[in-house]
Simulated assay, not measured.
Amino acid sequence: MVEQTRRLVLGGGTHGVVGRCRDFTRRALADWRWPSGSEAVDDAVLLVSEVITNACLHAGGPHELVLRHCPGRLRVEVSDGSAELPRVLPPRERVRPGGYGLVLLERLTEGWGTVPTGVGRPGKILWLELPGPA
């Protein structure tokens, strides 16, 4: 099985990042022949939007978005400079509207988690895996 990878270096900023990542994801999925307007594409773009937004809100902005595609599967990886791990807050602890990104990860992905960025580099990589289109 051949894996294809797309990488978008973001540098930790927040301005316009969510839209750039959604567009980048749509283009990559179109290149990989995922059907435009399909539920699989919509789910992938929604989840990229959510995890990038979380990196902007809670980690100072994402450093990089990596999409790894092989037949039947998409892996999304978002790195940031914060060692703080994501956690789902109960509704009574949410201080502003929203806070459903991690709930969506639980419901729409085949799995998700975090790993440390690497030796000598602070931060983490949040990853998620989605099934390809039917």
Rank of each mutant, 00 (worst) to 15 (best):
E93S: 02
R33A: 13
R92N: 05
T5I: 09
G120S: 06
S82M: 08
V66H: 01
A83R: 10
L10T: 01
V66Q: 01
E3A: 08
W112P: 02
G12S: 05
R7P: 07
W34V: 06
P35C: 02
C56S: 00
L46P: 07
L57A: 01
C21F: 13
G118I: 09
H63M: 11
I52T: 00
G101I: 05
R75L: 08
G72K: 00
G16P: 14
D31T: 07
H15W: 05
G61C: 00
H58Q: 01
E93G: 00
R75E: 15
R87P: 03
D23C: 02
D42Q: 07
R27F: 14
R6A: 14
G19I: 07
L8H: 15
H15M: 08
R94Y: 03
E50Q: 08
R96F: 07
R20N: 12
L8G: 14
H69W: 13
G113C: 08
L47A: 10
R87V: 05
E77W: 02
V115T: 15
F24L: 04
G19V: 08
E84Y: 05
T114D: 14
I52A: 00
V78I: 11
P90K: 06
L108N: 12
E106L: 07
G60Y: 15
C21E: 15
L47I: 08
D42F: 04
R94M: 03
I52L: 00
A40T: 12
V119S: 10
G61H: 00
L108S: 13
R26W: 11
E84F: 04
L8F: 15
G11E: 15
T25E: 07
Y100L: 07
T53P: 02
L89P: 02
G113F: 09
D80T: 09
D31M: 04
L105Y: 09
L104M: 11
H69Q: 12
G111D: 12
G81T: 10
F24M: 03
V48S: 10
L74F: 04
R73I: 03
G19H: 13
L57V: 00
P97S: 07
R121H: 10
F24D: 07
